[in-house]
Amino acid sequence: MQKFGGGCYCGAVRYQIVGPPAWSGHCHCRSCQLALGGAFVTWAKVAVDDFIVTKGEIRFFLKTPGIKRGFCGDCGTTLTYAAENKVEGQNWSADAWFSAATLDDPSIAKPKTHVFVSHQQPWIKFADELPTFPEF
C-alpha cells in the first residue's frame, strides 16, 4: 500500500498515512472556523491504524466535551480532530481525522461534500457542485 506524508508548518511534527484518504470534505462549522481561523477546513480520514506520527508529538486542545483537536506545540498548525462519541451510528474513534492541507500533496484528498453549511459564511460561494448538508 502506498504511503503519504504530511506535517505542520515548521516541520516539528510529521505523520504518515497508509493509502489515500478514505474520505475528505469541507467543514464550515463555527467551531472549525474559530479553531483554524478560516471560513472552513478540509478534513480527511484514514483508519486509525493507518495514521502514524513519525516525528515530534501532537499536542491536544479540549474545549468542546468529547472533541480533541490536535496541533503542533511549536507553530500551532492544526493537524487532527477526534470525536469520542458516536454520531448517527458512526464510530468516530475508528478513524484518524486530519487536516487535508497538512499533507505534503493535499491533492490526494479529494473532497466529496460540504458539511455544516448552516454555519457557512455568506461570502463563501460554492462553484464545485459537491453535495451540501446543513449539519454533518
Rank of each mutant, 00 (worst) to 15 (best):
M1A: 09
K3G: 04
G5T: 10
G5F: 06
G6L: 13
G7Y: 01
G7E: 05
G7T: 04
Y9P: 02
C10W: 06
V13R: 00
V13W: 02
I17T: 10
I17K: 04
V18M: 05
P20K: 14
P21Q: 08
W23L: 15
W23Q: 14
S24D: 06
S24E: 00
S24V: 02
G25D: 04
G25W: 04
G25H: 11
G25M: 05
C27L: 03
H28L: 01
C29M: 12
S31A: 12
S31K: 07
C32I: 09
Q33W: 05
L34D: 13
L36I: 06
L36W: 04
L36R: 11
L36N: 15
G38Y: 08
V41C: 03
T42E: 11
W43P: 00
W43N: 09
A44L: 03
K45H: 12
V46R: 03
V46F: 03
V48I: 14
D50Y: 03
F51S: 10
F51T: 10
F51L: 11
F51C: 08
I52A: 00
I52Q: 06
V53F: 02
V53Y: 00
V53T: 08
K55V: 07
I58M: 07
I58H: 08
F60Q: 09
F60T: 12
F60G: 09
F61E: 12
L62D: 12
K63D: 09
T64S: 12
T64G: 01
P65T: 02
P65Q: 04
P65W: 00
P65A: 02
K68H: 13
R69K: 11
G70K: 02
G70I: 01
C72A: 06
C72K: 07
G73P: 03
G73D: 01
D74N: 13
T78E: 01
T80L: 04
T80R: 01
A82E: 15
A82I: 03
K86C: 14
K86L: 13
V87A: 11
V87T: 08
E88T: 12
Q90C: 10
N91Y: 08
S93P: 02
A94R: 15
A94T: 11
A94L: 12
D95Y: 15
D95F: 15
D95R: 14
A96K: 11
W97L: 15
W97C: 11
F98G: 00
F98T: 08
S99I: 14
A101D: 15
T102V: 08
T102G: 13
D104I: 06
D105Q: 15
P106G: 07
S107D: 15
S107M: 11
I108V: 10
I108Y: 05
I108E: 09
P111E: 07
T113K: 14
T113M: 13
H114R: 03
H114A: 05
F116L: 05
F116M: 09
S118H: 00
H119D: 13
Q121I: 06
Q121N: 01
P122S: 07
P122F: 08
W123M: 05
I124K: 02
I124Q: 03
I124W: 02
K125F: 08
F126H: 13
A127K: 15
A127V: 15
A127W: 01
D128A: 04
L130H: 03
P131N: 01
F133P: 03
F133A: 05
F133H: 14
P134A: 13
F136Q: 10
